[in-house]
Design a protein around this nucleic acid. Sequence first.
DNA 1: GGCGTGTGATAACACGTGTTAGTAAAACGA
DNA 2: TCGTTTTACTAACACGTGTTATCACACGCC
Lengths: 352, 352
Amino acid sequence: MARRKVTSYDVARKAGVSRTTVSFVLNNVPGARISEETRRRVLKAARELGYFPNAAARSLVSQKTRTIGLVLCQTPDQVFHDAFLPEVLHGISDVMRPAGYRVLVEPVEDVTRPNAYIDLVLEQRIDGLILSGPRSDDAELPQLKEEGFPVILLGQLPGAGFPSVDVDNVEGARIAVEHLISLGHTRIGIITNAPPQYTGSAHRLEGYRLALAAHGIPFDENLVCYGNFTEGSGYRAMNELLGLANPPTAVFVASDLVAFGVLAAIRDRGLLVPRDIAVVGFDDVRMARYVTPPLTTVRLPAYELGQTAAQILVNWLEKGKEPPKLTLLPTELVIRKSCGAIRPQEFLPISG
Amino acid sequence: MARRKVTSYDVARKAGVSRTTVSFVLNNVPGARISEETRRRVLKAARELGYFPNAAARSLVSQKTRTIGLVLCQTPDQVFHDAFLPEVLHGISDVMRPAGYRVLVEPVEDVTRPNAYIDLVLEQRIDGLILSGPRSDDAELPQLKEEGFPVILLGQLPGAGFPSVDVDNVEGARIAVEHLISLGHTRIGIITNAPPQYTGSAHRLEGYRLALAAHGIPFDENLVCYGNFTEGSGYRAMNELLGLANPPTAVFVASDLVAFGVLAAIRDRGLLVPRDIAVVGFDDVRMARYVTPPLTTVRLPAYELGQTAAQILVNWLEKGKEPPKLTLLPTELVIRKSCGAIRPQEFLPISG
DNA sequence: GGCGTGTGATAACACGTGTTAGTAAAACGA
DNA sequence: TCGTTTTACTAACACGTGTTATCACACGCC
């Protein structure tokens, strides 16, 4: 079976030239003077022999692996991360492949453990790194910083000093709440996606405040509840809000998953969405359109996140282009039925 | 910044031995006679210098990359594949990392295009391959077969001659239908997940027939409808069944996604699940538990699929152990409310 | 004829490691 | 004391490629 591999030496012999010439031709080396005749002979020989350069030999001498790492940190909202992994990965891959890079994926369950992923760098397996869900207790990031290794964060980590790509959470939350205000609501609650120490959570809360302030609606501490990634937390938080003397007429839930619990809590009280309470979520998880009623939400551009991070990394590696410290991607409001902007009607199946 | 990398030569010099000795010590070469004293000196020097062997140099000489490829073929049911990607990937990674392998992920949008992914093999970037969602029009599989390259299929491709790991679709469907029968149903419809040429679809249909046959229930052609991956197809198919003179009292839908369309169709007719019609799905997609009513379904062991495929591949690569031609993983019936086995009750949020 | 000058190609080194064959010294047996 | 074996280690090659410095040669010019 596995017959010996064809090397550039074989190509050289078949074409009747030296190995150097083969290398020059196949790599299109700029300064090299090669006659058209020789070039053709080399290309023909390479094609006929089915020559493919050995990646290991190549990276050994060039000191470049043409591979990047995608490290997935296990954060408390792992479900959320997992939901977007395929899209993010596709976005990264769609940029990396044309640029000639491969993607090594490394899920890391515990960043505090020694050698969680840094061996990829130290063994020189990768040229750059995209780190999804960075954590402040990551022991290896400082070391990478010191080495000057190219790292892009997917998500934010204040003070880490690495270029970040993230969603514009403030703006996303703002347009969601603006929408509720435009529908006539003035008493609007918020249930966050996570405890306030998470930057994403803090930013979405800030967007909420901005929208209220822009319309002169006073901020009411009582209308703020904190979720913690799960539907259960949404269920509980919504019950709190419903227990108020003067409950809100609309709720902005900063996470679709949490919003599912919210919907359940409202239903269990015998109330109807959006007739009694309007709900807007955040993320546009796939199932958002299948719950009852279909959830109005803010789309998180997962594919674009991957794409952008990859593009920035490629520019960094290939052109030495300094990456921007922070890139925020725009969101988009997806209006369905839970906000009350659309009259209830028949279910329209997605065709195809 | 990026200071020169520490090589094994540096370690040798610091420890006052030859490079060969360093290699022997760090790799624990069996036959090598090294004194305890020397071994300690080498290990100390390596530690102090922060030595990590260069992966490229290592694979160049050893002809092994200690990397495997995970190729994701774009099949028509891409959404389905994407839904399970995180779990499959974790399963693979959890086996591969302890075994000392990395995972290179390559999404392929078009397997018929030349060099869709075979360059990974030809450039000798990987030692083995896990191919998810294999397709019969894949032009590169035969070439890999001929080369004797280690490939594991995730899913089945009859006649491909590669070892496969898949779910036991026949058995999964059988227990689902058995369950409906045990609840007293005798007029049970089926809506497949895909057209019959897909092996998964054919197998699930076969499990349906087996269950009926085991209980002497005649097979009725009219109760069979074919879905094609989407909710829309489920919506349409269910309407067909509901339009029958004598409609079924229960439906086995061989895909959760399709089942969501089925639930909608039933609801739009003003009927109730499970009171009027019982529904059982297949896959146990994450959102199955959030629809109304929560969907009884057959769990597809995604994590275990990845784990098993990875384990078989590792055994193949490391121990030369011949992989089994076909490994079928057991499924499990997850009973929720859509089948009617559980009395309707309050929503119980998942805590945590 | 000697001398730059550009053209087309190559010899030789470097990359960092695993491994085979071999060696020097020590230990051992008679 | 002199082979013989064992111990502890190393010189040298191989892996397959990119790249620098060099070379042979033809050509035109004074």
